[in-house]
Amino acid sequence: MNQQEINRILDEMEKKAEKDIEVVFNKRLKSILDQMLQMHKKFGKNGEASWTDVNKYNRFNQEMKMITQQLNADYKAIIKLIRESEERLYIERYLMLAYLLQQSTGEEMGFKIPSVEVIKSAIDNLVEFLSLPKVFEEHRNSIIRRLNIEIAQSLQAGESYTDMAIRIENAMGWTRKKAILVARTEGGRVRSQADLAVEEQASKTARLTKLWMSSLDTRVRKSHRKLDGQKADEDGYFHYGSWKSKAPRLWGVASMDIQCRCHTIYMVNGKLPEYRRGKDYMDDTYQKKLAARIDAYMEDTGLTYKQAFNKAYKDVKPPSVTVPFMSFGEWRKQFSGEG
């Protein structure tokens, strides 16, 4: 196991949560479209409802009230989904990184499974207007207003059901993307909080150095590309201009945090930790060759730290060794019953 593998596992967990959110919105879209179809059939002529017919006897407001009630329930369900995902992400990130650092150094670091209070504290956003309920209250109100406008305008323009459906699909697609963006940003923030908790505990017995690792692709924002490969200062902060942060997504600045896909990479006692059966990834000679190759790739070819790491990892091979090995699953059993 190494840090790249841990990140890939957690990325898949985040994708699962995003798919669950998509299911909620897809079900609601189908429900609203069916509701509008029935409205056209009931109040329309030749399959097209008019503003006059639908608005008669307060029918339009009744239709929108029903949609509002449904969306209220949906956003409560989405908040619950994200909360549950954040709890899983925090626990798994914490335990996997703790396992990697402890087993790769051979040092007992005194890790304990995070308590409910610790997890809740890490998940809660201390900035009130950035808390999940506040953020999604704004999202919910926005989509309700937009649906109200789109449906009313469609009726007033005398559009067909098909034209109205396109308007509704576009509106729901917009709010679905915003919800997934929030989930992705919050999941990353929670992962960073877990990193800091592990860092605090591991630093008691080992010397930790952390680096900023940007994503591979060209979508990386300019600021984060500049941060790529930067080592944190002696107090654990990364710096960009007048801003500082101890981990990705913890700047407290929207342009630096939203949809950030960067990660922290830890070096323990000057080495990149890795632990698996039959290979000594902490061997001094191997670590020196790996570090030199990473630096060379970044300097000579302009690769990001992540690209250089992946390329060097394939090129430089660790020595074989026969030592007692404990899998992550075995190591994790010691925490059974705690919490």
Score class of each variant (00 low, 15 high):
residue 321 V to T: 15
residue 332 R to M: 07
residue 281 Y to I: 09
residue 300 D to Q: 09
residue 239 H to Y: 03
residue 225 R to S: 12
residue 229 G to W: 03
residue 206 A to V: 05
residue 298 M to L: 08
residue 164 M to I: 08
residue 331 W to D: 03
residue 105 T to L: 06
residue 284 D to I: 07
residue 7 N to A: 14
residue 22 E to F: 06
residue 37 L to R: 11
residue 162 T to M: 15
residue 257 D to A: 11
residue 49 A to G: 11
residue 60 F to I: 00
residue 288 K to Q: 15
residue 19 K to F: 10
residue 332 R to F: 04
residue 168 I to C: 01
residue 94 Y to E: 09
residue 95 L to T: 06
residue 338 E to W: 05
residue 59 R to M: 08
residue 200 E to R: 04
residue 227 L to Q: 05
residue 311 K to S: 07
residue 215 S to F: 06
residue 59 R to G: 03
residue 154 S to F: 03
residue 33 L to H: 04
residue 151 I to T: 06
residue 169 E to C: 05
residue 240 Y to F: 15
residue 32 I to V: 09
residue 222 K to S: 14
residue 249 R to D: 03
residue 158 G to E: 06
residue 37 L to P: 00
residue 195 D to R: 03
residue 84 E to H: 07
residue 322 T to C: 00
residue 156 Q to Y: 14
residue 324 P to E: 15
residue 216 L to T: 13
residue 227 L to V: 01
residue 308 A to R: 06
residue 200 E to A: 14
residue 306 K to R: 13
residue 133 P to L: 06
residue 54 V to I: 08
residue 51 W to S: 15
residue 160 S to N: 08
residue 282 M to G: 12
residue 82 I to T: 09
residue 268 V to T: 12
residue 275 Y to N: 05
residue 132 L to E: 05
residue 238 F to I: 04
residue 177 K to T: 10
residue 142 S to A: 15
residue 44 G to Q: 07
residue 25 F to S: 00
residue 11 D to G: 11
residue 168 I to F: 01
residue 140 R to K: 15
residue 236 G to T: 07
residue 160 S to I: 13
residue 118 V to M: 12
residue 76 K to V: 12
